[in-house]
Amino acid sequence: MSANTAKKKSLSKESLTGLAFIAPAVVLLFVFLLVPFMLTIGNSFTNYNILKPGQTEFVGLKNFVKLTKDTVFMKSIVNTFVFVIMVVPLQVCLALGLALLINRKLKGISIYRLAFFAPTVLSLVVVSILWSYIYNPNNGLLNSLLGSLGLGPYKFLNDPKTAMFCIVVLSAWQGCGFQMMIFLSGLQDIPLYLYEAAEVDGATKFQQFVNITLPGLSNIAVFVSLNIVVAAFQLIIQPMMMTGGGPQNATMTIVYEIYQTGFKYNQMGYGSAMALVFTVMVLIITLVQNKITSKLNEE
């Protein structure tokens, strides 16, 4: 009995310590993450405008009905998916190609690895500004170089047909170094004896690549692709800096539209409804991601 109370007492002391250790983080996450998340849900059913807080009313599903008729928002969903569909294969292939290229024992190889990795530490603001000058249709670098080859001039970001693709290219360029490193560690995990055995059996380099390297990387490729999907879904800075969502809303994205509606035009309620739709999409992707990764881990 007395042993029991003693145990209880020491437990409660440890409990207090534990609670004290998590308290600062829990309070901050509650105020700046959980409450905002609840508010996003709550506000999406109101006409909340941050400049007119007194006039907030519950409007039911009105915001969501309005969303279905909002051509700009619908366009931003299509644009976001188009961006994702284009950037994921491009970025994965670039990352894989670079990883294969630098996965060899050569003197000074780390300098090349660094070169390919460098763009990932640049800010998207820097990259967007830099590429705006590269893409500039009048006196940009790309048109000038293409012009000396007798090509162009192209309008790049000023043409609704090509604007999103231009953003895809710079985004893949900026981000691929990150996935390159993940592929690289995957490549180094493939046991060498597999290649040695294949060599003995007389397999060509290409056959080794198809039969050993690619299967060895398939899990990582899936994982890396899904990561890029989630990140690509959140596209905002590039169109914000480079095109303002134009021309003709060709580069307007979901997150950019949330920012414009809620922050620029103060329509917090309507913007929250957009944010909620966005969240559901991201959650579905994350669920699929978790399903696939846990399935892969089982194998």
Partner: peptide, 15 residues
């Protein structure tokens, strides 16, 4: 952890 930052940016701003 899976809540994207963009989901909460508007209410974070109003808080």
């Amino acid at each position: 952890m899976v809540i994207p930052a963009q989901t909460v940016m508007l209410p974070q701003f109003s808080i």
